[in-house]
Structures are given as C-alpha cells and as structure tokens.
C-alpha cells in the first residue's frame, strides 16, 4: 500500500482466485435481466485490452463481480487467491 496516499482503513479486502471469480461473475451476469455484456467489455475490464466500456456494461460487470465475490466467500474453497 502506498502510505503517501492511502490510510490503513483503505486496504483492499480478500478476493477469491481470479478464474473462480470470473467464472462465477460471468454466470451471474448472464442471468441478469437485460442485454448481456459483450465479451470485449469483460476483456477490457480485466485489463487485457485498452478501450471503452459504457456505463450500463460497467454496472452489470461490477454488480456481477460483487455478487460473485460474496457467493464465493460463502462457498468452501472460495477463499483461494491467485
């Protein structure tokens, strides 16, 4: 953590391993009502390509990631990290 900028209360929380998180998040996102997020938006979100993500897609991805993190935290083995 950069102590020039961030306080102790700002340490990121534990996250499940990325492959498990992604698998769960994409599954959850597909089940949301409305238009599914294009695959390219996921690729950009994960930093594998530069580009633009529109707000509806960002909201869907973020909500799906949050739900997946919660789901895996309640699942045995969901606390594995990269």
């Amino acid at each position: 953590m950069c102590e020039d900028c961030f306080d102790e209360s700002e340490v990121p929380g534990e996250r499940p391993s990325l492959p498990r998180l992604m698998q769960a998040a994409r599954h959850i996102e597909r089940d949301f009502p409305g238009e599914a997020v294009p695959s390219e938006a996921w690729v950009i979100y994960l930093g594998r390509r530069s580009g633009t993500i529109d707000w509806p897609a960002m909201q869907r991805i973020a909500r799906a990631m949050e739900a997946a993190g919660l789901l895996l935290s309640l699942t045995p083995g969901g606390d594995l990290r990269n």
Binding site: I44, S50, G51, T52, I53, D54, W55, M58
Partner: peptide, 13 residues
C-alpha cells in the same frame, strides 16, 4: 452527474 463512458488502459500497453 451521469456516467457516459469509462476508458481503460491495458497492462499490455
């Protein structure tokens, strides 16, 4: 205020 878009830079850059 309402977001229009978000711009991301890839680690590959």
């Amino acid at each position: 205020p309402v977001p229009v878009s978000t711009f991301h830079v890839s680690e590959r850059e």
